[in-house]
Amino acid sequence: MLIGGAAVLVLLALCGLAVATLLQNQTNTPPAALPSDQPVVDQSAAADRSDLDSRDTDQSALTVKEVFPGKQLVPSDGGQTYQVLKTQAGTDCTVAATGEIGDLLVRLGCNQVVRATLRSPNGDYLVTAGLLNLTDAASAQRARDRIRQLLDERQGRFQGMVAGDGTEAVAKAAARVGWQVRGHYIAYCLVTRADGEQINSADAKTRDILYDMIEVYLNRGVLERRANGGVANQPTVSPTDGTASQSATRDRNPSGN
């Protein structure tokens, strides 16, 4: 009995040692995979977007290939086709706007314009549209707020770009113009009748063209792609826009010939 009791005590002692060792190992070894309520952060997601609020965070210059890549432009799936007649990219923003508007853009840091002249799907309208590259969102907003006043006071105008014979009206005729700010860019569009006649203020087709070019194509298309393909992940300011009329000019040599 004494020998049997001693054996039991030894066995219990050994089992206790094994349990203690097992518990020690569990304490010192981190769990391999524990369930967690924490969301998994995709580190690559931060590199899929670009902050358009400043050229400091959106450093790549615009190109014609990015903004107007082909001879035809379809603003949306299933939409009508605009014919691209001429494209231009440059560092002189005064080719896109004359007078005080051009001076304003320069003062606010505009260093690039990419634009194109197009013919509307029905051929009745000529369009010059493009993007102006300003220093930051604050500069773009200041330009937006001042442009309408300057147009109303006839202190400047957006300038259409002639694209060959039969397109002179885009630089000289009375026009409807629209503009919209997103980040440090101003998207703008100028619409004239191809025959040079005055556009009625209630012309629904002109409103459709302004919407197609500024909101659908340049904002949701070109700038959205740029925002999704950059190097930072910051919220984008909601776009704001304006429209106005500008009178005809008969004695000015059009820019961009």
Score class of each variant (00 low, 15 high):
Ala45Asp: 01
Val64Cys: 00
Glu66Gly: 09
Gln83Pro: 00
Gln83Asn: 11
Val67Arg: 02
Thr57Glu: 09
Ser44Tyr: 10
Ser50Arg: 12
Glu66Val: 05
Ala46Trp: 07
Asp42Glu: 09
Lys71Ser: 06
Arg55Lys: 03
Leu52Tyr: 09
Ser60Asp: 04
Val67Pro: 02
Asp48Asn: 11
Ser44Thr: 14
Gln59Ser: 06
Asp77Phe: 13
Val84Glu: 08
Leu73Ile: 13
Pro75Leu: 07
Leu62Asp: 05
Leu73Ser: 15
Asp37Ala: 15
Lys65Cys: 00
Arg55Asn: 00
Ser44Val: 10
Ser44Ala: 10
Val64Gln: 02
Ser76Thr: 13
Arg55His: 01
Tyr82Met: 06
Asp77Cys: 00
Leu52Val: 05
Ser76Val: 12
Gln43His: 12
Ser76Phe: 05
Leu73Arg: 15
Arg55Asp: 01
Thr81Trp: 05
Asp56Cys: 01
Val67Met: 05
Val41Glu: 14
Ser50Asn: 15
Ser36Cys: 05
Gly79Trp: 06
Asp51Ile: 03
Ser60Asn: 09
Leu62Tyr: 01
Glu66Ile: 03
Ala61Asp: 10
Asp77Thr: 07
Val40Gly: 03
Asp51Pro: 02
Gly78Cys: 05
Val41Arg: 15
Arg49Pro: 00
Gln38Asn: 11
Asp37Thr: 15
Asp58Met: 00
Asp53Ile: 02
Thr63Arg: 08
Ser60Val: 10
Thr63Cys: 12
Ser36Met: 02
Val40Ser: 05
Asp48Thr: 09
Pro35Arg: 14
Gln72Cys: 02
Val64Ser: 01
Lys71Asp: 03
Lys65Glu: 12
Leu62Val: 11
Asp53Ser: 15
Pro69Lys: 03
Gln83Ala: 13
Gln59Val: 00
Pro75Phe: 09
Thr57Val: 06
Asp42His: 10
Gly70Asn: 12
Asp56Gln: 07
Ser76Asn: 06
Gly79His: 08
Ala45His: 03
Ala46Phe: 11
Ala46Val: 09
Gly78Trp: 04
Gln83Val: 04
Thr81Gly: 05
Thr57Phe: 01
Gln38Ser: 08
Asp37His: 14
